[in-house]
């Protein structure tokens, strides 16, 4: 999960690890916008995302010593952010459990491929973002981890605390939830590929 066209700021990280304030500032300036956007997608409100971004970087300051420089810094940073956001969401357990239970209890619908294709074609990015905001915490988190930060199934399983084999199900359920939000409750329920 390296960033194409972008080299890892190895030297800056080394200096930041050694306590160089300027290097730390450089890392912050470079990565804060991406992490903010990640948190913005994963969490419900802009305020939560701002808080989370600050907290992630404060955590990072303590954890930077643990970072193994043979791995991708960006991937590691997203992993820290994902864990933090998921912890934040998990702390709001009561509401979240309700959401996920509701979603999990809905059986997976089998979409009509043509209808799905048309739906995807017709939707704009803005509509998708709005729909994302209406999803349950776990569904949103899973989609953000996979399609924003490009985390592997193993990393997603680790962050969400589920078995790896279940990650596909989580992602598929999340997509279905998203489609329902995009298309109305039962647009894709009718018909099937078989």
């Amino acid at each position: 999960m390296s960033a194409p066209g972008k080299t890892e700021p190895t030297e800056t990280i080394t200096r930041a690890k050694a306590g160089d304030g300027e290097a730390w500032g450089q890392l912050y300036r470079e990565y804060a916008p991406a992490i903010f956007r990640f948190c913005r997608r994963a969490l419900a409100t802009r305020e939560d995302a701002e808080d989370a971004t600050m907290e992630v970087f404060m955590k990072l300051r303590d954890k930077l010593g643990q970072y193994d420089q043979s791995r991708s810094f960006t991937a590691w940073l997203y992993k820290v952010s994902a864990n933090h956001c998921w912890d934040t969401l998990r702390r709001r357990r009561i509401r979240q459990d309700k959401e996920t239970e509701d979603v999990d209890s809905v059986p997976l619908e089998h979409p009509d491929p043509s209808q799905l294709d048309r739906l995807i074609e017709q939707r704009t990015s803005e509509e998708v973002r709005k729909a994302l905001d209406t999803l349950g915490a776990r569904a949103r988190m899973a989609l953000v981890m996979r399609y924003y930060s490009d985390m592997s199934y193993d990393e997603i399983a680790d962050a969400l605390g589920v078995r790896r084999a279940f990650v596909g199900v989580v992602l598929l359920r999340a997509r279905h939830e998203l489609r329902r939000a995009l298309a109305g409750k039962s647009l894709l329920a009718a018909g099937g590929a078989s």
Partner: peptide
């Protein structure tokens, strides 16, 4: 579409975060 939607909408870094490090 998901990836594009998440990467678009370049919200400016809030002032609170822009000044946070300093």
């Amino acid at each position: 579409l998901l990836t594009r939607a998440m990467f678009e909408d370049e919200e400016a870094l809030p002032a609170r975060l822009a000044e946070f490090q300093e």
